[in-house]
Every structure is written in C-alpha cells, then in structure tokens.
Design a protein around this nucleic acid. Structure first.
Lengths: 231, 231
DNA sequence: CAAATATAATAGCAATACTATCATATATGA
DNA sequence: TCATATATGATAGTATTGCTATTATATTTG
C-alpha cells in the first residue's frame, strides 16, 4: 500500500498512528476535521464520537487510525513541528550570515501563522492555535518518558537543536542555547495566548509585533550579539 | 463560622471553592491528600473518588468543598502563587537597590522549592511539581475568560505586575517587562521539567543551577542592566 | 469475479464526573 | 441539656467518555 495520498507530505513518526491518515480519504478527513473540532471545542471536550458525527463517519473507524485522542494530538503537533522545520529550512536558504539566520528563524518561529496552501487538509492557522493551547498537554503527562523513547518529540527536539547550532555559530561560548530557544518558542506561544485572554501578563507596543520583537531582542542580547542591520 | 482553622493562612480567591477547605479538618485533609495524589498519578488520572478512598472519606463530601477537580487545581495553584508572593515579599524586605531586588526575586521564582514548615497540610515541594506540570491546564482552557473575570488568576497577575515594577525602576524605558517576567517564570518551570524528561531541550552546566543563572542573566541583559556584585 | 481490505452500524463495558437522597454524627447556642 | 442546625457518610443513579467487539456492507486489487 502506498503511504502517500497527498502530493506534498511531511515526515511524522509512524508510531503516533496505527494507520497513516495520509493514506486514505477518510484519514485526511479525520485530520482536517479534528483540527476544526479541537480548535472549536478544546481538547478536553473533543471526542472521537463527536468527530465521527462531524465527518459522517464512525467512532470505531477513527480508532483504526489513532489509538486515542492523545495520539491524534501528538500527530497534529508533530506534523506542525515538521512543517515549521521545513518552513525554516526554506526561509533560511540563501541566507549565510548566522546573525541573519537567527533573526529570520526567530521571526518564523514566533510570528502569527498564516495559511500555507500546500496542504489542503490542514489549516495551519487553526493548527497553530491548537499547538499554542494544547501542546503542553502532549508532554506534561505521566507518559512523557515512554513517549519520548518512542520518538514522539523528535521533530521538536531536532528543531531546537538546529537553532542552538546557529546560536553557537554566533557565540560558541554561550552556555544556554537550548534553554534560550525552547524558552523563547514556548514563551512566544504563551504570549500570544495571554494577549488574547490574560493581557496583564504581556505587553502591547504600538506599531510592532511585540512578541516577535521581544523574542529577537532577548535572544541577541542574551548571547551578546548585535542584530543584523535592517535592509 | 470562622474561616481560619490554621494558624498561618494565605489569601485564595473564595470563588474557587464552595466551602473554604481551611475551615475544617476534612478540608485540610482534602488539600493535603490531593497534593500527594495529583503529584503521584497526574491530574488526568486524579479523581474525587480516588481522593475519597485515600482519606477514608467520601466523594460526595469532597464535592461540598470543590465544584470539580479543576476548581481544586485552581485552588492549589492560587495558593501556590499567594505563597510565592509572600515568600518574595519576605525575601525582598530590607533590600533596597532594585537590581538586587530583581536578582533575588528571580532566584526565588526559579529555584528548586523546599518545604516551608509554616503550612502543615501543604507540601510545597510536591506542589511546585504540580504547578510545573499542571498549571497551564488551569488557564489553557475554553473557560479562561470566564475564570479570569472571576479573579482566579489575580495572584499570578499581581506577582507579574510587582516584578514588572521592579524592572521599570531599573530601566523605565524597557518595553516588555510583563513579557519578560511571565516568559521567565513559565520558562523556568518548563526547563525544570525538561531537565527531568526531555534533556535535549535544555542545558546543564556543572557547578551551577543553570535555570536560575540563565534566568537572571537573560533578565539583566534584556533590560540592559548590570547585575549586582556578589557579596 | 473472488478475495482481501476498509468502512459502517450497533452494542456493550468499565470508569468518570457529577447529583440526589437519606441517615448519622457532631457542634452550637438557648 | 436538649433541640436544632450543620457536616459528614453511605449508597445509588445518570449521562458521558474512552474504548473494544461483532457483524454487515462497501470498495479495492490482483
């Protein structure tokens, strides 16, 4: 059986699903509708039964693709980080200076997300909201260690590793490159959420995207480097 | 009826509970045992039925104190931030220079937590682990806005506000004081979790507590201030 | 066209998140 | 001290959740 039903396809650890959802029309519908439904009702209220109703299919059929709703969430989040990794790879192509690479990558990681037309069944705008609101629920569990062994977080760890390497190119003596990056990525997500719901935990600045600016500035100052000149 | 059964008592928004757990022996036992149980099995697997068994009491009795396990979690987290606020107030008493105040406060906010003998029914060490692992579940919900209106996050917001003020004392032109503080607090929590479970997302440095050092350094560099000289 | 495979329909089960009812302690204050 | 209020306990019940099992019907493929 072919594993690819879509034209463009991203790498997702095959242990998060039972049957690859990209291998069938039903699978694609499951993914597409799950994004809509989780975004709409939140992960706690999301159930396979409701999802089945939504796509005029069957709870039992969905279980043939994903062992549980947690695994489906893992799938979505892994897909997101794989997509983001690719986005950064493309975005950094042809940029050589590590300072510029870092600045551009931070922008890509912390900016508001827009639709990417390459994946018809995935709404990256909504998926970003899901990652912001639900990602910590995918690893803040009693099963982290097991899930980690199975490689569920490989994409995210790889991305953090790549970013750290850029930082070390700029300042090879900086002691906390992974901390800095993971703090800024998760931090930016939280700040987006706070801006919507708990504004006293964040700051708004006229005429700029404060989340991006804060992240860039904090990163360059932390590693003691000068930001590239704006073209 | 007296609302205070304990000698020392911290302010927790009275809308998170139905009946104040500090007002009775059963209430105190509920709080104490819930910390142990959530820490042990995780919040998802935690139920009032199991808690009832644990304390040889009754599910229905627990519901007379807390509307749901989410409200109980809110209670624990609010208590934690109220406790932390007080810890910082004490810790900063007699320190005048804002740079020293900031440095000390960041240490208190990001260091590993030890038992505080003042509250017999609360194990702050375990509670800290719960806050690290479960706090985002208390606000990353579809009910945030409503909960926020009811004042459930007041303690945390107040703490972030106080810290921001210290930052502004040091550098009144810094644009992102709230962002910086909330990012560092949540970031430090995540880093503690990563160190245990996803070490590739963090950094370890011999001979120092890297979470504290990273946080202090990042804060002072971000606001463009020099760290106070070590005594 | 037969055989394999995927999906749908339905049912069922144990656990969860409550609510309700009634009985029995325990505390309080007149 | 006795009546009354209040707190707790015991038990049961309901709707929903998170699954699994079974059997029937499409659909694909060789």
């Amino acid at each position: 059986m072919q594993d690819s039903f879509t034209s463009f396809s991203l790498q997702v650890n095959n242990r998060v699903y039972i049957k690859n959802p990209e291998s069938s029309a039903l699978g694609l519908k499951i993914v597409e509708a799950s994004i809509n439904l989780i975004d709409k009702v939140g992960f706690e209220a999301f159930t396979f039964r409701k999802l089945g109703l939504e796509i005029h299919s069957n709870e039992a059929s969905i279980y043939r693709y994903f062992e549980s709703k947690y695994k489906l969430l893992m799938y979505l989040i892994s897909w997101y980080w794989s997509w983001m990794g690719q986005r950064i790879d493309f975005g950094l192509a042809n940029i050589l200076a590590p300072e510029e690479r870092l600045e551009k990558a931070i922008k890509l990681l912390t900016e508001d997300i827009e639709l990417d037309g390459n994946f018809e069944h995935i709404n990256e705008y909504k998926l970003n909201r899901i990652v912001i609101a639900e990602a910590s629920k995918s690893y803040m569990t009693k099963e982290v260690d097991q899930n980690n062994e199975e490689g569920f977080f490989a994409g995210y760890k790889q991305l953090v590793g790549q970013m750290s390497n850029i930082i070390l190119e700029i300042n090879s003596t900086y002691k906390y490159p992974h901390m800095l990056i993971s703090t800024l990525i998760e931090g930016a997500h939280h700040q987006r959420f706070f801006a919507q719901h708990l504004p006293r935990l964040t700051d708004e600045v006229n005429g700029e995207d404060a989340v991006i600016e804060f992240s860039k500035e904090a990163a360059f100052k932390a590693i003691g480097a000068r930001r590239p000149i704006n073209k």
